[in-house]
Nucleic acid binder design. Structure first.
Length: 131
DNA sequence: TCTGTGATTGTTACT
DNA sequence: AGTAACAATCACAGA
């Protein structure tokens, strides 16, 4: 199964009325066209399928994902009917918003740890990439 | 049977 | 400084 494919998905929202994410810069995958076409934009990651870097370490899960992992369990327990990713995603996202730094602390700690390891991998990856 | 899509936020890498 | 892409996960739909 494909790891991830949100590149051409589109139809991101059932309702076009509400913006996807106004809190951030803009839309993430709102551009159905290939990024490479942009040219002026980042063409480095034009296609995930490129995969020219098999050694490249995958990005560590963010505090949100770490929390989501546990949240999914709890969520499924209360909502065994809602297993869909969108269900936990929204539910988790909503809760995540309510959560406070203190509660996110343990998750951020984990994320921070992952980042540390990720940096290590990056070092090895870069070393290999160059050589 | 297999692949792709959907949704969430945070973090990264590039320009 | 700003922007786009990706990270994990499962159920459903199409060929």
């Amino acid at each position: 199964m494909m790891k991830s494919a949100r590149g051409k998905g589109t139809s991101k929202a059932t309702k076009e009325a509400v913006p996807v994410d106004d809190r951030k810069a803009s839309k993430r995958k709102a551009a159905p066209v290939s990024v490479a076409d942009k040219g002026d934009k980042q063409r480095a990651r034009k296609d995930k399928k490129a995969k020219k870097d098999p050694n490249k370490p995958k990005r560590p899960p963010t505090a949100f994902f770490v929390f989501l992992e546990e949240f999914r369990k709890t969520f499924k327990k209360e909502n065994p009917n809602a297993n869909a990713v969108s269900a936990v995603g929204k539910a988790g996202g909503q809760k995540w918003r309510e959560m406070s730094a203190a509660e996110k602390a343990p998750y951020e700690a984990k994320a921070g740890k992952k980042k540390d390891e990720y940096g290590k991998l990056m070092d090895a990856y870069n070393n290999k990439k160059v050589g």
